[in-house]
Design a protein around this nucleic acid. Structure first.
Lengths: 170, 170
DNA sequence: TATTGTTATACTCTATAACTATA
DNA sequence: TATAGTTATAGAGTATAACAATA
């Protein structure tokens, strides 16, 4: 288990995965409260964020990104489309798939929410230094890659670099 | 944002809190599946773990430890008591409170589950080195302390050092 | 036959309101 | 009045089964 310094905390929560679940619930709770003021849920924001970063994709990849079963995702996409934050079209190469794109309004919304969310991060990570926050984020990203890769055999998102620059802000 | 090396991943999930929520859900999902085979939920395990580490406490402190509203915690304690994994008695100094203790069977169970959970951790954190896992765990613990302290004004668990040694195992 | 998206449904978890008993 | 625990209930989130359209 690799010996650290001597200031290792007793235990409190011996399993990292369980501690992750505990903190994740707390974080989601705060996000949900903030987002509910705009009629959105964490899943809605997750879809917008994934679309904003990766550009057009189909629903199943988005479901994987936000960790929601496709069976439960339909109402999520419906709501986003009803709010004109995304648009769904039929994929021409494979008509089973529905291509999803973020709209200009969706892009504005996700940028707004991201800024507001930064305040939540600030509170949540108040006990960490800037360097520790960066380290934590980097490690969590690595874990994220692991679970996405393990669910399917080889999937890492198409990485179609949506012309994000067109909506340059701030 | 403190410049790291140059191998910083693009973004994927810009908010640490949101990424935490995403990974926490995945982790909880895996724990839930493992625990369901024994008729338990993540909350049940959380209670047992907190009791095993901190000894006797009352219900509200346990609720805070596992992040569950006291209103939703009653069935959790009831189930644990029905399985004889915990025992509830009336606190003599304040008869409103119900003192909760872990039983010998509960201690055996939590040790078993902790070992089984280690396999889950291994899979979940497969992308990290041992050192990175230790770092991640330490950072998450710090965040945990932050949110517990922020919810109430000053609470850090009584730290009554239950005679854990009596159940020495392995 | 396998995959994408969908519907219906049941189940779990969480949040809101109000009540009892103790302090 | 405030707190610990409880109950009832509605809502959000998640899992199970089955289906239509397309590949």
């Amino acid at each position: 288990m690799a010996q650290e310094g001597a200031d290792e905390p007793p235990e409190l929560t011996s399993s990292t995965g369980f501690l992750l679940a505990r903190l994740g619930a707390e974080s989601r709770r705060r996000w949900a409260r903030m987002l509910s003021e705009r009629g959105l849920s964490p899943h809605h924001f997750g879809v917008l964020m994934a679309l904003d970063q990766h550009g057009e994709t189909h629903q199943q990849r988005l479901c994987e990104a936000i960790g929601v079963d496709p069976r439960n995702a339909v109402p999520i996409f419906d709501t986003l489309e009803a709010h004109s934050l995304i648009a769904r079209t039929s994929d021409q190469t494979d008509r089973r798939k529905r291509a999803v794109v973020i709209t200009a309004a969706g892009r504005t919304t996700v940028d707004e929410l991201r800024r507001t969310g930064a305040a939540l991060d600030h509170d949540l990570l108040a006990g960490l230094t800037d360097h520790q926050r960066t380290t934590l984020h980097r490690l969590l990203l690595k874990v994220f890659d692991t679970i996405v890769d393990s669910n399917h055999s080889t999937i890492t998102m198409p990485a179609q670099p949506a012309d994000r620059s067109a909506a340059s802000r701030t």
